[in-house]
C-alpha cells in the first residue's frame, strides 16, 4: 500500500515583499473590476447604507420606538449598519474568491490564502466610503466625538481579524461544498437579525443574552457604539467573548488553509 507521505522542497522561497505586492495587486484589481463599466461606480457603496439608515430610522425608531439612548437614532443605526455592511460584504465577496479563480489556481502556484485576503482588503475601500457617510451624520447631528473614539481602532482590529478568519473558512468551505455559496445570503440575513444592528444589545431578552454575547458581532457593534458616542471603553462582558470567538475563527481559518490548500487545485 502506498503511503500518503510526500516531501516538497523548493528554492528560492517566495519573498515576503513579493507576496505583499501580489496581495496588493490582487486587491487593487478586484476593486477596479467590480466597478468597471458601472454608471455610478463607488456611488453604489453609499446607496445601501444610506437607504437602509433612512428606512430603519423610519420603521424602527418612529414606528417601533426602539430606543437609542442619548444618541440620535439615525447615527446609532448607521454605525451598526456600516459595521454590519463590512462583515456582509467581506463574506459575500470572499466566499467565491477561491472558486472564481479556478483557472488561475490550476496553472499558477501562488499562496492561495492571498485570494480571500485580497477580497478582505478590497472591501476596505468600501469601508472608506462608508466612513465618510458616518462622519457626515456626526456633523449633521453635531455629536461631539469623545476621546474614547481612539478605542475604535482596537475594536476594528478585532473586527478585521474576525473577517479574515471567516473569509478563509468560507472561501475554502465553498470549494468542497458548493452549498456554502447558496447558503450564504440566507445565513447572512439570519445573522443580521440576531446582531444588534438596528437595536441595542440591551434590548435582547434576558434569557437570550447569554447566547447573544457569543455572537462576535454583538461585541463588535456595541463596542463601536460605546467608544464612538457613549464615551466609554468597550463593555468587556460583550467584547471578551467576541475576542475569544475571533481568535478561534482566525486560528481555525489559517489552520484549514495550511492543511488543505495543496489539494484545492485538484477539486476545483
Amino acid at each position: 500500500m502506498r503511503q500518503s507521505r510526500f516531501r516538497i522542497e523548493r528554492s528560492p522561497k517566495p519573498s515576503l515583499r513579493w507576496t505583499l505586492e501580489l496581495l496588493w495587486s490582487l486587491a487593487l484589481h478586484r476593486v477596479s473590476i467590480r466597478y468597471k463599466e458601472t454608471l455610478f461606480g463607488f456611488g453604489w457603496i453609499f446607496l445601501q447604507p444610506v437607504a437602509l439608515t433612512f428606512i430603519f430610522t423610519y420603521i424602527f425608531h418612529r414606528f417601533a420606538k426602539i430606543p437609542s439612548g442619548n444618541t440620535p437614532y439615525a447615527l446609532f443605526a448607521a454605525t451598526g449598519l456600516v459595521a454590519w455592511s463590512l462583515t456582509a460584504l467581506v463574506i459575500s465577496q470572499s466566499s467565491s474568491s477561491v472558486t472564481n479563480h479556478n483557472v488561475l489556481l490550476k496553472r499558477v502556484a501562488l499562496p492561495k490564502v492571498l485570494l480571500p485576503l485580497s477580497a478582505v482588503i478590497a472591501t476596505l475601500a468600501d469601508l472608506g466610503v462608508m466612513i465618510v457617510l458616518l462622519i457626515g451624520l456626526f456633523v449633521y447631528y453635531q455629536v461631539p466625538l469623545s476621546l474614547t473614539a481612539a478605542w475604535a481602532l482596537l475594536v476594528f482590529a478585532v473586527h478585521l481579524a474576525l473577517l479574515i478568519g471567516l473569509s478563509c473558512l468560507v472561501s475554502l468551505a465553498n470549494v468542497f461544498l458548493r452549498d456554502i455559496g447558496q447558503a450564504i445570503p440566507f445565513l447572512l440575513q439570519l445573522w443580521f437579525f440576531v446582531s444588534p444592528v438596528f437595536y441595542p444589545a440591551s434590548m435582547v431578552p434576558a434569557e437570550f443574552r447569554g447566547l447573544a454575547k457569543w455572537n462576535p458581532m454583538t461585541g463588535i457593534i456595541e463596542g463601536y457604539r460605546a467608544v464612538l458616542f457613549v464615551g466609554k471603553p468597550p463593555a468587556w462582558d460583550f467584547m471578551g467573548p467576541a475576542v475569544l470567538v475571533t481568535v478561534c475563527v482566525l486560528v481555525a481559518g489559517i489552520a484549514c488553509f495550511r492543511r488543505l490548500e495543496g489539494i484545492v487545485a485538484d477539486i476545483l
Partner: peptide
C-alpha cells in the same frame, strides 16, 4: 509547478 501536491513521493525544485 507547485500547483498541486503529490499524494506521495519527493519533489525537489531548485530555481524559479
Amino acid at each position: 509547478a507547485g500547483v498541486t501536491q503529490p499524494t506521495s513521493g519527493t519533489v525537489v525544485v531548485n530555481g524559479r
